[in-house]
């Protein structure tokens, strides 16, 4: 299933930039070897799987654990160059995005993952690739795609909507998640 995404989809809470033209390649992709900070939301299974997968694939990745009160987001002061990314609930994506843009970060990508009618629907960059992926493994696939983006192997500017097979929803999943990434170029304001 392929659909063009409308602008509002992309300009969702926080990750907003009036000039964003597509999902992939929104900002300049950071050079290899740059540090990647992964926001890992406690208690959300997809976020934990994503974080684990990214940490195992990207040697420079380190996790920022965020609890339900999100205090950690306020304690975190981005500095230097690098990437901040996460697969989190939508409110966390919004809050992180707002704080990061104010700090001078540039959005790289935003993919939405929503559960409804017994299946996950992924709004992602490039070709659909989640159709046969289980409810347990799709966060790892998202992490691999993000890894490719960061390594400069971007899937291309085209966006797609991809629905999974019928599957369950974990009791602790919010059922609407966002994969997001921002780049810091060292010029924090």
């Amino acid at each position: 299933m392929m659909n063009e995404l409308n602008r509002r989809d992309l300009l969702g809470a926080g990750l907003v930039t009036a000039g964003l033209a597509g999902v992939a390649g929104l900002g300049s992709v950071p050079a290899r070897g740059e540090p990647v900070r992964v926001v890992r939301q406690q208690g959300i299974p997809e976020s934990i799987r994503f974080s684990d997968a990214l940490a195992s694939e990207v040697p420079t990745a380190s996790a920022l654990e965020v609890g339900p009160g999100l205090d950690e987001l306020f304690g975190y002061r981005p500095s230097g160059k690098g990437v901040i990314a996460g697969l989190t609930s939508d409110p966390v994506a919004m809050i992180a995005g707002q704080l990061l843009v104010e700090a001078g970060a540039t959005p790289i990508l935003r993919w939405d993952h929503s559960y409804g009618a017994g299946r996950w629907t992924h709004r992602i960059a490039g070709q659909p690739g989640f159709a046969g992926v289980s409810q347990f493994t799709w966060p790892a696939v998202a992490a691999m795609r993000l890894r490719d983006e960061l390594a400069g192997r971007a899937a291309g500017p085209r966006e797609s909507v991809c629905a999974s097979e019928i599957c369950g929803l974990s009791a602790r999943s919010p059922g609407f998640l966002v994969t997001w990434a921002f780049r810091l170029d060292g010029g924090v304001r």
Partner: peptide, 29 residues
């Protein structure tokens, strides 16, 4: 119970952002 936890914190003056999680009810915020 995160709802109980954040209300207990607020009533004793501890700021937190937990209430944003209620936006997950529908999704899309």
């Amino acid at each position: 119970d995160p709802a109980w936890d954040y209300r207990v914190k607020l009533m004793r003056g501890e700021p937190n952002m937990t209430e944003f999680s209620i936006m997950n009810w529908i999704g899309g915020g």
